[in-house]
């Protein structure tokens, strides 16, 4: 299987490379190939993955060669005597011992390597003064907080490039409802977000760009569209982003009429816009929603048209989502959308 998969994978990578070219402009890596890592945990996992695949491929080839040659060599030939049975062999202790101990040695090597890499991924020290973020799973979106930087946003996480130019990032993973799982394949393997529990995961991404991920634990109706984006950028850009996200909106310079309509509706029961009376906690923080690349937790690009369709009837776009159809009039819709667009 492994050779077959490897050759299939090459086709996939080729296709991936083609698509990568088209997406490179936006810096968005849409092919989340686990064998193309950009942070230490994913790289460690890739390395041990290739190692174990090499071993299993060798075993596969050996076993298949043995099996196929046996099937060909010992098939019954037309000239064989029907009644003549082949020599009856009952077994051999030496052979049994051999094919017990050789695999045992291989397995011991694998166990040793596994233990070592578990220590690298789970136990390693991410270095001094990492950036700390809390990622909190909701049905069906990711709440994002950088408590030390005062940032609150959703679904799109910005982190600094690590290494000599910047610190690693520590994620504290939590959930308010059911189990979710945080998985950005090119940065780190997945780690579940379990209610009543805080798991920690760290990454030290080396390449700027936007990395896609998904919720990887079934969490209900819209599990499929619970998407993640991690934008890796140079430290100064990251700090500028954090400062912008931290700021409350200036109530005087915003679209005042839209804001009043927004605040007169029950939007504010679930959504917060910091600096205004809207302080709902149930849905994503909208303070800087206009600055995000996507809405509906990564499902669609954040354009005024999409935003309008979304606010008009979220159920139509994403059946089962917990945001109800608010039955806004056309004027209300216009006002709310222009207000949201203005929340940069």
């Amino acid at each position: 299987m492994a050779p077959a998969i490897l050759s299939l994978l090459q086709i996939g990578l080729l296709q991936a490379a083609l698509l990568q070219g088209t997406a490179a402009k936006s810096g968005e890596r849409r092919i989340t190939n686990i064998f193309e890592p950009f942070a230490t945990p994913a790289a460690a996992e890739r390395d041990i993955g290739l190692f174990v695949m090499l071993i299993t491929a060798a075993i596969f080839v050996a076993v298949c060669a043995l099996l196929i040659s046996t099937m060909i060599r010992f098939r019954r030939k037309p000239e064989d005597d029907e009644r003549q049975e082949p020599p009856q062999v009952y077994g051999s202790n030496q052979i049994e011992i051999a094919w017990t101990f050789i695999p045992l040695l291989i397995i011991f090597v694998l166990i040793g390597v596994t233990a070592r890499v578990i220590a690298v991924v789970q136990g390693a020290n991410p270095g001094p003064a990492p950036v700390r973020a809390r990622i909190i799973g909701h049905q069906w979106w990711f709440e994002v907080q950088f408590p030390e930087l005062g940032v609150a946003t959703a679904n799109e996480i910005h982190v600094p490039v690590a290494g000599s130019s910047g610190p690693a990032t520590m994620f504290q993973l939590e959930s308010v409802d059911v189990i979710h799982s945080f998985w950005v394949p090119q940065l780190a393997g997945k780690l579940d977000m379990v209610p009543n529990r805080a798991n920690t995961l760290w990454i030290d991404p080396t390449e700027p760009g936007t990395y896609l991920g998904n919720c990887a634990e079934y969490c209900g109706t819209q599990h499929a569209n619970m998407l993640l984006r991690v934008t890796v950028e140079p430290k100064d850009e990251f700090l500028a982003w954090a400062a912008a996200q931290k700021a409350s909106i200036n109530v005087n310079t915003q679209d005042v009429e839209g804001r009043q309509v927004f605040e007169s509706l029950s939007c504010v029961n679930c959504h917060a816009v910091r600096g205004t009376p809207a302080n709902g906690k149930f849905g994503p923080d909208l303070t800087h929603v206009g600055s995000r690349q996507t809405i509906a937790s990564g499902m669609i690009p954040n354009t005024p048209q999409n935003l309008r369709a979304w606010v008009n009837d979220a159920q139509e776009m994403k059946p089962g989502v917990l945001m109800p159809n608010m039955k806004l009039t056309k004027q209300e819709l216009d006002s709310v959308v222009s207000y949201l667009v203005s929340l940069k």
Binding site: G49, V52, T56, T114, V117, I118, G189, L191, A216
Partner: peptide, 16 residues
């Protein structure tokens, strides 16, 4: 493939 999945660090990627 079961052996591959049994290697816990690789499983962090492959799980689910």
């Amino acid at each position: 493939t079961g052996v591959m999945l049994g290697v816990a660090p690789f499983n962090f990627q492959l799980h689910d």
